[in-house]
Amino acid sequence: VSEWTEYKTADGKTYYYNNRTWESTWEKPQ
């Protein structure tokens, strides 16, 4: 699942961004 990158927002929430599909999600990808 290497295309997903984990980021943190300014208020400390974690989200995930897909470099291949430009998708972002709050849930941890499978």
Rank of each mutant, 00 (worst) to 15 (best):
Y16Q: 05
N19Y: 07
N19L: 10
N19V: 11
V1N: 13
D11P: 01
T14F: 09
P29W: 06
N18V: 02
T5R: 08
Y16P: 02
S24L: 14
S24R: 07
Y15S: 01
Q30S: 14
T9M: 04
V1E: 14
E6R: 01
K8E: 10
Y16V: 00
V1W: 13
Y7D: 02
Q30T: 14
N18F: 03
P29S: 05
T5W: 09
W26F: 15
W4M: 03
W4E: 01
S2Q: 11
Y16T: 00
E27S: 04
S2R: 07
E6Q: 06
Y7I: 12
E27F: 06
A10N: 09
A10Y: 04
E23L: 02
Y17I: 15
Y15W: 11
S24I: 15
T25F: 12
S2W: 13
Y15V: 09
E23K: 03
E6A: 06
D11F: 05
Y17F: 14
N19S: 12
W26G: 08
T21F: 06
G12R: 00
T9W: 02
V1S: 12
G12L: 00
P29H: 05
D11V: 01
S2L: 09
Q30D: 14
N18Q: 02
P29E: 03
A10M: 08
Q30N: 13
E23Y: 06
W4Q: 01
T9I: 02
T14M: 07
E27N: 07
K13H: 09
E27D: 12
K13A: 06
T14A: 05
E3R: 02
S24E: 12
T5C: 15
Y16E: 03
T9Q: 04
K8M: 12
K13V: 10
D11Y: 05
T25S: 13
K8F: 10
D11Q: 07
A10W: 08
K13D: 11
E3Q: 06
W22G: 15
N19F: 07
W22R: 15
E23H: 01
T9S: 08
E3Y: 06
S24D: 08
Y7P: 00
D11L: 05
W22V: 07
R20S: 14
N18I: 00
T9E: 04
Y15N: 02
V1G: 14
K8R: 12
T14W: 04
T5Y: 11
Y17P: 06
Y17N: 03
Y17S: 02
Y17M: 09
R20W: 15
K8T: 13
V1Q: 14
A10L: 08
K13S: 05
G12Q: 01
W22N: 15
K8L: 12
Y17E: 08
K28F: 09
V1K: 11
W22P: 03
W26A: 12
V1R: 12
D11M: 03
Q30A: 14
Y17G: 04
Y17V: 15
P29I: 05
E3S: 03
K8P: 02
K13L: 10
R20E: 15
T21M: 03
Y16A: 00
N18H: 11
Y17T: 07
N19P: 09
W4V: 03
P29Y: 04
P29V: 04
S2T: 09
G12N: 06
Y15R: 05
T5D: 08
E27Y: 07
D11T: 10
K28L: 12
E6I: 04
T5Q: 12
E23D: 05
P29M: 04
E3A: 08
T5L: 10
Y7K: 13
N19W: 10
K13Q: 12
N19E: 15
E3F: 07
T25H: 06
S24T: 15
K28A: 10
D11S: 07
E27M: 04
T14E: 05
N18M: 01
R20T: 14
Y7E: 09
T25L: 11
W26V: 13
K8H: 12
T5P: 02
Y7S: 10
R20Q: 15
Y7G: 07
W4T: 01
W22Y: 15
K28G: 06
P29G: 08
E23R: 00
T5E: 10
A10I: 12
T21R: 05
T25P: 06
K28H: 09
T25G: 08
N18R: 01
Y17W: 13
S2I: 12
W26Y: 13
K13E: 11
W4A: 00
E6M: 04
R20A: 14
Q30G: 12
K8D: 03
K8I: 13
N19G: 07
W22H: 15
A10V: 11
W4H: 01
Y7M: 14
T9A: 07
R20D: 14
T21A: 03
K8V: 14
E27Q: 10
T5V: 15
Y17D: 01
W26E: 11
D11A: 05
W4F: 04
S24F: 14
S24N: 05
E23N: 02
T25N: 06
T25V: 14
K28E: 09
Y15Q: 04
N18K: 01
D11K: 03
T14H: 06
E23T: 05
S24W: 15
A10S: 10
T21Y: 06
T25A: 13
T25M: 12
D11I: 03
E23G: 01
V1L: 13
T5N: 05
G12V: 00
T14L: 10
D11R: 02
R20I: 15
K28P: 14
E3L: 05
E3M: 05
T14G: 02
P29Q: 04
T5K: 08
T14S: 10
V1M: 13
T9H: 03
S2A: 13
T9D: 11
A10Q: 11
E3D: 12
Y15L: 09
T21P: 02
T21L: 05
G12H: 01
T14K: 08
N19A: 08
